[in-house]
C-alpha cells in the first residue's frame, strides 16, 4: 500500500513538472510582450523596464494614423458583426421554425461551401467581385466579405441553439394572440440572446484580428485597420520601431483579451470559442 502512495506521489510530481514546463514554453514567446510596452528603451530582447513608463503609449496616442487605424478596425468589425448577427439570427430562426423544404440540405451545402471556399482559395475571385462592384478600398468591402464568409458558421451555431429551445414558448404566445413577428421579437429573441452574444463575440474577434482580407482589399492609409497599419511602424531602413509596435500591439490586443475574459466569465470558455474560421 505504501508503494502505491509513493507511486501516486511520483506521478503527480511528474505531471506537475510536465505541465509547468509546457505552460512555460507556451508563455515564453509572449513574455517579452508583458514588459516591452512599458519600457521606453525596449528592444527585441527581454528586459525588465527600469523605470516602468507609459511613454510608449503616449507616443501611440499622439500618432493620428495609429489611432485612425484602431477606429477603422472598430468600424469594420462592428459593421461585420451587426450584419452577421442580424442576418444569422433571422436565417437560423427560419431554418429552425419555418416549414421551408430542403432545410437540411441548405445547412449541409452552406457548411460545405464555407469550408471549401477559404480565404486563400478565394482571394482572387473576392478581389475581382469587389473590383467589379467598385468597392475596392472601402470599409464596406471588408464588412461584406467578412459577413459572407462568417455567416454559414454563425447560422450553424445559432440554429443548434434555437433548435434546443422548445417551440411551446412561441406557440403559447401565438395561442394568446401574438403574431408570428411578435412571437419572434418578444418571445424567441430574448431566449436566443446568449447564442447571439456568442456569435457576435466570435465574429468580432475574427474580423478584428484578420490580416489577409483588408490587406488585399484596401489601398489607402486612412482606411487601414490596425492589423495592416501596424506594418507602418517600421523605420525607413525596414527595422521595426519596437517601442511603438509593442505598445500598439498591446492596445490592439486588449479588446480580444477583454472579450475572452467576458465569454469565460459569462459562459465558461468551453466550446463556443472552439469554433474558429
Amino acid at each position: 500500500m505504501q508503494k502505491r502512495t509513493q507511486n501516486i506521489f511520483v506521478r503527480r510530481t511528474v505531471f506537475a513538472a510536465a505541465a509547468t514546463f509546457l505552460g512555460t514554453v507556451f508563455a515564453l514567446p509572449l513574455v517579452w510582450f508583458i514588459f516591452a510596452p512599458f519600457n521606453a528603451r525596449a528592444e527585441l530582447g527581454l528586459a525588465i523596464p527600469s523605470p516602468f513608463t507609459l511613454s510608449n503609449f503616449a507616443t501611440v496616442f499622439e500618432n493620428t494614423f495609429a489611432m485612425q487605424a484602431l477606429l477603422n478596425s472598430l468600424i469594420q468589425a462592428a459593421g461585420g458583426v451587426v450584419l452577421v448577427g442580424a442576418a444569422a439570427t433571422l436565417a437560423a430562426y427560419a431554418l429552425s421554425r419555418s416549414p421551408i423544404p430542403g432545410k437540411g440540405a441548405v445547412t449541409y451545402i452552406l457548411l460545405l461551401f464555407s469550408s471549401v471556399v477559404s480565404g486563400s482559395a478565394a482571394m482572387v475571385p473576392i478581389f475581382l467581385i469587389i473590383s467589379a462592384a467598385g468597392l475596392i478600398d472601402t470599409h464596406l468591402a471588408v464588412i461584406l466579405v467578412f459577413a459572407g464568409g462568417l455567416l454559414p458558421t454563425a447560422m450553424f451555431i445559432l440554429r443548434d441553439f434555437i433548435d434546443a429551445i422548445p417551440r411551446s414558448y412561441e406557440e403559447s404566445a401565438m395561442v394568446a394572440g401574438a403574431s408570428p413577428l411578435q412571437a419572434f421579437f418578444d418571445v424567441a429573441l430574448p431566449v436566443i440572446r446568449p447564442g447571439i452574444v456568442v456569435v457576435v463575440v466570435w465574429a468580432f474577434v475574427n474580423i478584428w484580428g484578420s490580416f489577409l482580407i483588408p490587406f488585399i482589399l484596401l489601398r489607402s492609409d486612412k482606411l487601414m485597420p490596425a492589423s495592416v497599419a501596424i506594418y507602418s511602424f517600421y523605420s525607413e531602413a525596414g527595422t521595426p520601431i519596437v517601442t511603438l509596435l509593442a505598445a500598439y500591439s498591446l492596445i490592439y490586443s486588449l479588446p480580444v483579451i477583454a472579450l475572452y475574459l467576458f465569454v469565460n466569465w459569462k459562459f465558461g470558455f468551453r466550446f463556443f470559442g472552439g469554433i474558429k474560421s
Binding site: 461551401f113 473576392i126 461584406l144 466579405v145 459577413a147 459572407g148
Partner: peptide
C-alpha cells in the same frame, strides 16, 4: 439577407 451575402461572397467566388 443571409442568402444574398453568402451567395455573393461565398458561392459566386467558388
Amino acid at each position: 439577407p443571409a442568402t444574398a451575402l453568402v451567395g455573393v461572397f461565398v458561392i459566386i467566388p467558388f
